[in-house]
Protein backbone atom coordinates (compact mmCIF):
# COMPACT_ATOMS: atom_id res chain seq x y z
CA UNK A 1 0.00 0.00 0.00
CA UNK A 2 2.63 2.46 1.00
CA UNK A 3 4.59 1.64 -2.11
CA UNK A 4 1.63 2.29 -4.31
CA UNK A 5 1.04 5.64 -2.69
CA UNK A 6 4.66 6.60 -2.94
CA UNK A 7 4.74 5.64 -6.59
CA UNK A 8 1.80 7.85 -7.39
CA UNK A 9 3.34 10.69 -5.44
CA UNK A 10 6.56 10.68 -7.37
CA UNK A 11 4.78 10.69 -10.69
CA UNK A 12 6.94 9.53 -13.56
CA UNK A 13 9.94 8.70 -11.40
CA UNK A 14 11.61 5.36 -12.08
CA UNK A 15 10.46 2.50 -9.83
CA UNK A 16 13.75 2.36 -7.95
CA UNK A 17 13.31 5.90 -6.73
CA UNK A 18 9.74 5.49 -5.66
CA UNK A 19 10.03 2.61 -3.25
CA UNK A 20 11.13 4.68 -0.28
CA UNK A 21 11.27 8.33 0.56
CA UNK A 22 14.86 7.87 1.64
CA UNK A 23 15.94 7.12 -1.89
CA UNK A 24 13.93 10.03 -3.14
CA UNK A 25 15.70 12.34 -0.76
CA UNK A 26 19.09 11.28 -2.05
CA UNK A 27 18.19 11.34 -5.71
CA UNK A 28 15.36 13.82 -5.94
CA UNK A 29 13.48 13.54 -9.17
CA UNK A 30 13.83 16.75 -11.16
CA UNK A 31 12.12 17.90 -14.34
CA UNK A 32 15.36 18.11 -16.28
CA UNK A 33 17.18 15.18 -14.65
CA UNK A 34 19.93 17.59 -13.60
CA UNK A 35 20.42 17.76 -9.85
CA UNK A 36 19.08 21.03 -8.44
CA UNK A 37 22.24 21.81 -6.47
CA UNK A 38 24.32 21.47 -9.61
CA UNK A 39 21.96 23.73 -11.53
CA UNK A 40 22.14 26.24 -8.70
CA UNK A 41 25.93 26.30 -9.00
CA UNK A 42 25.76 26.80 -12.78
CA UNK A 43 23.32 29.68 -12.36
CA UNK A 44 25.50 31.21 -9.66
CA UNK A 45 28.54 30.98 -11.93
CA UNK A 46 26.59 32.80 -14.66
CA UNK A 47 25.98 35.58 -12.16
CA UNK A 48 29.62 35.49 -11.06
CA UNK A 49 30.68 35.90 -14.71
CA UNK A 50 28.87 39.22 -14.66
CA UNK A 51 30.66 40.22 -11.44
CA UNK A 52 34.08 39.51 -12.92
CA UNK A 53 32.99 40.94 -16.26
CA UNK A 54 32.11 44.25 -14.63
CA UNK A 55 35.41 44.42 -12.72
CA UNK A 56 37.45 43.47 -15.79
CA UNK A 57 35.58 46.09 -17.84
CA UNK A 58 36.34 48.70 -15.19
CA UNK A 59 40.02 47.76 -15.31
CA UNK A 60 40.14 47.88 -19.12
CA UNK A 61 38.38 51.25 -19.28
CA UNK A 62 40.76 52.78 -16.75
CA UNK A 63 43.80 51.19 -18.36
CA UNK A 64 43.16 53.28 -21.47
CA UNK A 65 42.73 56.58 -19.71
CA UNK A 66 45.76 55.99 -17.51
CA UNK A 67 47.66 59.16 -16.74
CA UNK A 68 51.14 57.81 -16.27
CA UNK A 69 51.40 57.91 -12.52
CA UNK A 70 54.26 55.62 -11.57
CA UNK A 71 54.64 52.80 -10.98
CA UNK A 72 53.04 51.78 -14.28
CA UNK A 73 52.10 48.16 -15.11
CA UNK A 74 55.07 47.57 -17.42
CA UNK A 75 57.70 48.32 -14.77
CA UNK A 76 56.02 46.64 -11.85
CA UNK A 77 54.77 43.29 -13.21
CA UNK A 78 57.04 40.29 -12.76
CA UNK A 79 55.69 38.08 -15.55
CA UNK A 80 57.81 34.97 -14.85
CA UNK A 81 56.81 35.07 -11.18
CA UNK A 82 53.09 35.42 -11.92
CA UNK A 83 53.33 32.76 -14.63
CA UNK A 84 54.51 30.30 -12.01
CA UNK A 85 51.66 31.10 -9.67
CA UNK A 86 49.18 30.89 -12.56
CA UNK A 87 50.64 27.48 -13.35
CA UNK A 88 50.19 26.43 -9.70
CA UNK A 89 46.50 27.37 -9.86
CA UNK A 90 46.12 25.55 -13.19
CA UNK A 91 47.70 22.48 -11.62
CA UNK A 92 45.14 22.62 -8.83
CA UNK A 93 42.41 22.09 -11.43
CA UNK A 94 44.11 18.84 -12.38
CA UNK A 95 44.21 17.64 -8.77
CA UNK A 96 40.56 18.62 -8.40
CA UNK A 97 39.65 16.42 -11.36
CA UNK A 98 41.63 13.57 -9.79
CA UNK A 99 39.73 14.01 -6.50
CA UNK A 100 36.40 13.75 -8.28
CA UNK A 101 37.58 10.74 -10.25
CA UNK A 102 38.69 9.05 -7.02
CA UNK A 103 35.35 9.45 -5.25
CA UNK A 104 33.44 8.36 -8.34
CA UNK A 105 35.41 5.11 -8.04
CA UNK A 106 34.63 5.00 -4.31
CA UNK A 107 38.20 5.65 -3.16
CA UNK A 108 37.64 8.01 -0.28
CA UNK A 109 41.23 8.11 1.03
CA UNK A 110 42.60 8.90 -2.41
CA UNK A 111 40.00 11.60 -2.89
CA UNK A 112 40.98 13.13 0.41
CA UNK A 113 44.62 13.25 -0.63
CA UNK A 114 43.77 15.04 -3.87
CA UNK A 115 41.44 17.45 -2.08
CA UNK A 116 44.22 18.36 0.34
CA UNK A 117 46.60 18.77 -2.60
CA UNK A 118 44.13 21.08 -4.32
CA UNK A 119 43.68 23.16 -1.18
CA UNK A 120 47.45 23.33 -0.75
CA UNK A 121 48.01 24.49 -4.32
CA UNK A 122 45.30 27.10 -3.83
CA UNK A 123 47.03 28.26 -0.66
CA UNK A 124 50.35 28.51 -2.49
CA UNK A 125 48.64 30.74 -5.06
CA UNK A 126 47.22 32.91 -2.27
CA UNK A 127 50.60 33.15 -0.59
CA UNK A 128 52.07 34.17 -3.94
CA UNK A 129 49.43 36.85 -4.31
CA UNK A 130 50.13 38.08 -0.79
CA UNK A 131 53.84 38.35 -1.60
CA UNK A 132 53.06 40.11 -4.89
CA UNK A 133 50.81 42.64 -3.17
CA UNK A 134 53.39 43.42 -0.47
CA UNK A 135 56.16 43.88 -3.03
CA UNK A 136 53.89 46.23 -5.03
CA UNK A 137 53.17 48.19 -1.85
CA UNK A 138 56.90 48.56 -1.20
CA UNK A 139 57.37 49.84 -4.75
CA UNK A 140 54.80 52.51 -4.04
CA UNK A 141 51.67 51.05 -5.66
CA UNK A 142 48.62 50.96 -3.40
CA UNK A 143 44.86 51.43 -3.66
CA UNK A 144 45.09 55.20 -3.89
CA UNK A 145 48.27 55.68 -5.97
CA UNK A 146 46.51 55.70 -9.32
CA UNK A 147 43.51 54.36 -11.19
CA UNK A 148 45.72 51.44 -12.12
CA UNK A 149 46.35 50.70 -8.44
CA UNK A 150 42.67 51.00 -7.54
CA UNK A 151 41.33 48.79 -10.30
CA UNK A 152 44.22 46.27 -10.20
CA UNK A 153 43.94 45.55 -6.49
CA UNK A 154 40.16 45.39 -6.56
CA UNK A 155 40.06 42.95 -9.49
CA UNK A 156 42.83 40.63 -8.29
CA UNK A 157 41.67 40.94 -4.69
CA UNK A 158 38.14 39.93 -5.68
CA UNK A 159 39.59 36.89 -7.42
CA UNK A 160 41.82 36.10 -4.44
CA UNK A 161 38.75 36.18 -2.18
CA UNK A 162 37.15 33.59 -4.46
CA UNK A 163 40.23 31.37 -4.15
CA UNK A 164 40.22 31.76 -0.36
CA UNK A 165 36.55 30.76 -0.14
CA UNK A 166 37.36 27.80 -2.38
CA UNK A 167 40.23 26.66 -0.13
CA UNK A 168 37.96 26.94 2.90
CA UNK A 169 35.29 24.91 1.10
CA UNK A 170 37.78 22.19 0.08
CA UNK A 171 39.05 21.89 3.65
CA UNK A 172 35.51 21.57 4.99
CA UNK A 173 34.98 18.75 2.47
CA UNK A 174 38.09 17.05 3.85
CA UNK A 175 36.66 17.35 7.38
CA UNK A 176 33.34 15.95 6.18
CA UNK A 177 35.07 13.01 4.54
CA UNK A 178 36.78 12.18 7.84
CA UNK A 179 33.36 12.02 9.40
CA UNK A 180 32.36 9.55 6.70
CA UNK A 181 29.89 11.93 5.08
CA UNK A 182 31.29 11.71 1.56
CA UNK A 183 30.71 8.55 -0.38
CA UNK A 184 30.46 7.46 -3.97
CA UNK A 185 26.71 8.05 -3.76
CA UNK A 186 27.13 11.75 -3.13
CA UNK A 187 30.14 12.36 -5.34
CA UNK A 188 28.04 15.25 -6.60
CA UNK A 189 29.14 17.25 -3.55
CA UNK A 190 32.69 17.07 -4.87
CA UNK A 191 31.59 17.71 -8.44
CA UNK A 192 29.86 20.96 -7.45
CA UNK A 193 32.88 22.18 -5.50
CA UNK A 194 34.91 21.28 -8.57
CA UNK A 195 32.69 23.37 -10.83
CA UNK A 196 33.38 26.39 -8.64
CA UNK A 197 37.09 25.66 -8.45
CA UNK A 198 37.52 25.28 -12.21
CA UNK A 199 35.57 28.50 -12.78
CA UNK A 200 37.89 30.40 -10.46
CA UNK A 201 40.89 28.98 -12.34
CA UNK A 202 39.51 29.91 -15.74
CA UNK A 203 38.84 33.43 -14.57
CA UNK A 204 42.46 33.70 -13.51
CA UNK A 205 43.63 32.67 -16.98
CA UNK A 206 41.52 35.52 -18.33
CA UNK A 207 42.83 38.03 -15.79
CA UNK A 208 46.41 36.89 -16.30
CA UNK A 209 46.09 37.39 -20.04
CA UNK A 210 44.26 40.71 -19.99
CA UNK A 211 46.02 42.33 -17.06
CA UNK A 212 49.54 40.93 -17.07
CA UNK A 213 50.35 39.75 -20.60
CA UNK A 214 48.76 42.69 -22.45
CA UNK A 215 49.73 45.48 -20.07
CA UNK A 216 49.64 48.34 -22.57
Amino acid sequence: MSQAVAERTSGAAPPAASTTHALEAEHPHTSTGVDSRKMLMWAFLASDCMFFGTLIATYMVYKQRQELIPPVPREIFDIPYTSVSAFVLLLSSVTMVLALDAIQHNRVARMRTWLIATALLGSVFLAGQYYEFTSFFSEGLNLSTSLFGSSFFLLTGFHGTHVAIGVFWLLSLVVQSWRGKITQANALTIEIAGLYWHFVDIVWILIFTLVYLIPE
Binding site: Y62, E67, L143, S144, L147, G149, S150, L154
Partner: peptide, 17 residues
Amino acid sequence: FDRHFGTNFFEVAKGGD
Protein backbone atom coordinates in the same frame (compact mmCIF):
# COMPACT_ATOMS: atom_id res chain seq x y z
CA PHE B 1 36.21 51.66 -1.62
CA ASP B 2 36.30 55.29 -2.74
CA ARG B 3 34.63 56.42 0.45
CA HIS B 4 36.52 54.23 2.91
CA PHE B 5 39.73 52.86 1.44
CA GLY B 6 41.11 55.71 -0.61
CA THR B 7 40.58 54.42 -4.15
CA ASN B 8 39.92 56.91 -6.97
CA PHE B 9 37.31 55.25 -9.16
CA PHE B 10 35.07 58.31 -9.17
CA GLU B 11 37.65 60.94 -8.07
CA VAL B 12 37.86 63.33 -11.00
CA ALA B 13 41.03 64.97 -9.65
CA LYS B 14 42.81 61.60 -9.84
CA GLY B 15 41.52 60.81 -13.33
CA GLY B 16 38.43 58.91 -12.20
CA ASP B 17 35.38 58.93 -14.44
